[in-house]
Design a protein around this nucleic acid. Structure first.
Length: 104
DNA sequence: CTGTTGACCAAAT
DNA sequence: TATTTGGCCAACA
């Protein structure tokens, strides 16, 4: 059986995440109606075409951290993008205690 | 087909 | 509060 959603479903949902907000991989999976598919969401973002214009940087893990090695360029890029929209990191964790999601 | 890997997660320790 | 453990699903070797 195939996944209960297609990559484009995730792209569509991700596109709706407002600037200055962050969501977790698991949340995206839930929003797609597929609890337990957090890893698959990660795989999809991994394959995301560059120049898609999607706010991939607003996706973090459930620990409230960026899912890249701290030393990596990707990590720094994501952090930079987040800070440019007012989301700062404290101790490697997003400085917003609760991940904001303005409902549907 | 089996085994490993990954932008994950929640519960147990 | 910090780590470890077990579970998760799809992609790949």
């Amino acid at each position: 059986m195939h996944a209960p959603f297609s990559p484009s479903d995730i792209w569509f949902i991700l596109a709706k995440i407002p600037e200055g907000n962050v969501v977790t991989y698991g949340q995206l999976a839930n929003m797609a109606g597929a609890p337990g598919y957090a890893r698959v969401v990660g795989n999809i973002l991994k394959q995301l075409p560059s120049g898609s214009g999607l706010p991939w940087h607003r996706v973090i893990n459930s620990k409230g951290q960026i899912s890249f090695p701290e030393a990596s360029a990707k990590y720094q890029q994501q952090q930079s993008l987040l800070e440019s929209e007012g989301v700062t990191l404290l101790n490697g964790k997003v400085n917003l205690k609760l991940y904001q999601w303005n409902g549907e």
